[in-house]
Design a protein around this nucleic acid. Sequence first.
DNA 1: ACCTGAACACCGTTCAAGT
DNA 2: ACCTGAACACCGTTCAAGT
Lengths: 233, 233
Amino acid sequence: MDQIPPERGRGRPRTPILTRRRITTAAMDLIQNSGYRSLTMSALANQLGVSASALYNHVGSKRDIMILVQDRVNEEIDCSGFESEEWDVALENWARSYREVYSRNIPLIPVIAVLPVANSPHTLVMYEVVTAGLMKAGWPEPLVVNAVTAVESLVFGSAYDATAPGDIFDPGALNELAPIFAAAVARRNLMLVTDEDGEEARSGADAAFDLGLRCLLAGFREELRTLRQGVAP
Amino acid sequence: MDQIPPERGRGRPRTPILTRRRITTAAMDLIQNSGYRSLTMSALANQLGVSASALYNHVGSKRDIMILVQDRVNEEIDCSGFESEEWDVALENWARSYREVYSRNIPLIPVIAVLPVANSPHTLVMYEVVTAGLMKAGWPEPLVVNAVTAVESLVFGSAYDATAPGDIFDPGALNELAPIFAAAVARRNLMLVTDEDGEEARSGADAAFDLGLRCLLAGFREELRTLRQGVAP
DNA sequence: ACCTGAACACCGTTCAAGT
DNA sequence: ACCTGAACACCGTTCAAGT
């Protein structure tokens, strides 16, 4: 089936030093060790023992590398709940894992959010698992993609939030511009440390995500119930 | 009350060419006319008839300018619903306006999402209106900030989504990796053009945001109802 | 086909020098 | 105090030249 490609020219074929796989792995290592800020074409080339211009024999741009990284990162998202759990529990677990992964990979969000899913195999497999799980649970086919997208939107927004400084809502010197808001922020912060069942203090971002996800899922359940009763047009 | 500041040195005080206000306005003009990509320090300086280094007498960095722009952009968000409407209707209108504004200002999202609200007067006023509206409607004080944050997270994620290409979910050549997902995407697309009450085709991103916002608000209403009945610990 | 090294066209930012 | 002009330390990307 696989034919040995005909050799063009006279030289023997040489095994290339670089492959897209190796470039992706090196990029992941670099990110893991020194963060996205240090992922530059020359740093990446240096890590691979190669000159920066050599990378352009295998990828078209730095954005291409981000896309490769993104597909690999999506493998870390846990979809296992859809095998055994109820759809709403599975969806919640998936959303939590999704948020955790992207709060560690914030610079990927502008990339993935606008990126066609074609050519991203692991991403597609993830969507397949989630879609199949929802449809098996009786979700109507035309709504599934919208529901998944809505959860993703909440996840991306919340991932940003998770990386924000804890005092992001402190009004500071402009306190008198927003007294009611300032009081609510203070009350929220108090709540976070003295949570009834909480030995451990949660962050405001976590509490907001918890509330949002819980209410979104409650709304989903209600939506499904309404649709099943059948609404006459 | 306002005293004329004492003159230091011998020179008479000169009126500066540049102010933070003027810089912000020029930045907004530049963005409006040629987009965020063309907002560079030298282009901005050029627009103001000044050299790039002069800007650093008034702002510490380009990020500072983004923050000034962001506070001005937030003025465009419509909060008027909280004056007259029910809290859920007002919150929905606010979220829709918020998303519309930020889908035109995507590059601000990474800035605002992580930005302390202090020193952003218009942003604070917005939060004040929303918070006051929710609390007047009976929302418990410790939950208000979390609810607002959850809506914002959905809004930011959906704003990204709104700028994505329409065929973002087409599996392309990897179709066989995700057959169930591919079918659901096709079915969704069909739904969009043949919507029962829709003369006008909506985008998938709009449909997803509609579903997400509707369900989130339904969940909020249920949460409030439950809290009002009082749950004994 | 694949890699090197030099060069290009930008960035944001700094700083001595002027007034 | 505020602006200029030159310079700095980077970026991603291109391209002729080598093998």
